[in-house]
Design a protein around this nucleic acid. Sequence first.
DNA 1: CCTATAATCAAAAACGTTTGCAAGGTTTAT
DNA 2: ATAAACCTTGCAAACGTTTTTGATTATAGG
Lengths: 336, 336
Amino acid sequence: MAITIKDVARESGVNVSTVSRALNGEYGVHSDTRELVLAVAERLQYRPNRVARGLVTGRSHTLALVVSDIRNPFFAEVARGAEDAAYASDYDLVLCNSDLDAEKQLRYVESLMEKRVDGILMNSVAELSKKQVEQLSNVGVPIVLLNRAAPRNAFSTICADNDAGGVLAAEYLWKLGHRKIAHLTGPRHHGNMTERANGFVRALSEARKPVKPVVLHGKNNFQGGMELAQKLLAQHEDVTAIFAASDMMAFGAIRALMEAGKRIPEDVSVIGFDNVELSTIVNPPLTTIHQPKYEIGQAAVEILLRLAGRGEHQAPEHRVFGVHLIERRSCMERKS
Amino acid sequence: MAITIKDVARESGVNVSTVSRALNGEYGVHSDTRELVLAVAERLQYRPNRVARGLVTGRSHTLALVVSDIRNPFFAEVARGAEDAAYASDYDLVLCNSDLDAEKQLRYVESLMEKRVDGILMNSVAELSKKQVEQLSNVGVPIVLLNRAAPRNAFSTICADNDAGGVLAAEYLWKLGHRKIAHLTGPRHHGNMTERANGFVRALSEARKPVKPVVLHGKNNFQGGMELAQKLLAQHEDVTAIFAASDMMAFGAIRALMEAGKRIPEDVSVIGFDNVELSTIVNPPLTTIHQPKYEIGQAAVEILLRLAGRGEHQAPEHRVFGVHLIERRSCMERKS
DNA sequence: CCTATAATCAAAAACGTTTGCAAGGTTTAT
DNA sequence: ATAAACCTTGCAAACGTTTTTGATTATAGG
């Protein structure tokens, strides 16, 4: 049996309440007794039971991160930033993979509530019904979303400036002389990606000579990028530039293009979004829009902890990080 | 205030113990009362407090995964497998990044113990002192290691057949005609990588015409691969083939080689280990040793749950997964 | 020297569950 | 018909902490 606070109380001849105070460094315990208690606790290798503590304090010192898939390098980076920040404040982080499945996502939240986590960080990418949003709002624990949400609801949000990123990509491609342009993006209703698409097509439509890109929706991963690029080649052989809504999709697109005998960037330029580490090693190195993934994860739990510290209802915080273009070698000028 | 079991007891006119039994589907409660209780619980939106339950049952329904860095695609894949398996059994998974730091690793374990996790899955890659191993053995919660450990200690282990993988790489390179061979590997004392190295050099030394590869140690990531390849080029210009102990290191090596003006595979062949998803998209596609990452994570928590189910001291389980060579285009024949 | 105040600690309640035990009531078997 | 077995339920004790309250002692001010 594990040794409890009672054991160290008995062993040091004081009451458990005194042990508790001594160990937690609270005011009102004589330095002599404190030292004694500390010594005994050390000798007995006492480890406080955090679930017992959690029961009385109502706080579990645990945060949760629910992402669609941790294998997505973007989320891995966010997760690392989040975990580091949590660790720094002595919080644990539980990991959940929702696969964009609204039901699974809600099941996770429910389970997390039962466990009394102190905050949830999630990319609520799935379309939630009004009822679900309501349910989520009332869980009583702070939630920060990794994407901008409908302004009415009460979640805090943190994300990159997706719209600006889309604009950056559009301007870049346009200046390079491209006029037959495609945008490969994720599922409809994916908040972040929708914003990227919006910025992109808007910027192109406002160019000196407006361009209307073809926009294809698919899965946000390597596979999805491949499939969309294949579909694109079948329908629009003549595109000279592709903006992929994520680096993973860009990788898939590049693969499909190469298999179809296209050279990059000579035949078609490709630009991605995220700037994941691997984008430097693919060949050619991927031109992309950088967003601060680690910092987003980090900032998210900082917000979470701040909200968790305050009681009950707090004003939601919002934060958007700037993005910038990383020019590598997957795009080139198009003289038409 | 959240609503508790007492509320539903009062509301349905029965004792809390009956509510508990009804909700947990235990034997010995009349179907009428059960239905009533269930209805009331539903109406009141009752959510049991898992912390309180954990206190009495002594089980937290939580597992932990401590890896060196979740950004390493290998670990991301393992994590996903582990989380899926945990989710299937209604367990939560907390994520920890140890950075190969022995002290940080132990701090994590200590914190996890305080939280009464039901099992820990870790790649104990750091060199642990005898005292630390002992400490770990006595924590009282099942631990499964992602690498083979010293046989004396009581941890369960699960990993790929690293030695065989090393042999595979050696035989492949040798048959292709390479005789000037290098092996870029991770830090010394990295269990899995040491085994890969062992298999590799042994197989080469037992070849018809024995070869002694140069072995360089460094960091197990993209950066480390780059640095080692640069060092290698400076010291041994004449190598014609490189076996990298992980795909990430292989990517780094390829990058360094390309920057040094080498063509792959014409000038130098490169073979990796892991077969991460990205290895198909790098150019040239990477020839590598496949190990079943997702399955390893999955199997690890299955073992963990089995061990957690049984009481106290159980015989450790060991499992090793087979590996195989994936031939792509980063290696070619060498006629010397 | 006496009282008011502060410092130190013990006692006990609380947190929300599960669970062993016993008390009823109801069926079954003899 | 009665004892034995069984089913259903309530009661209360855990689980290991924190925290409030109150008592005892030491300190200080006059």
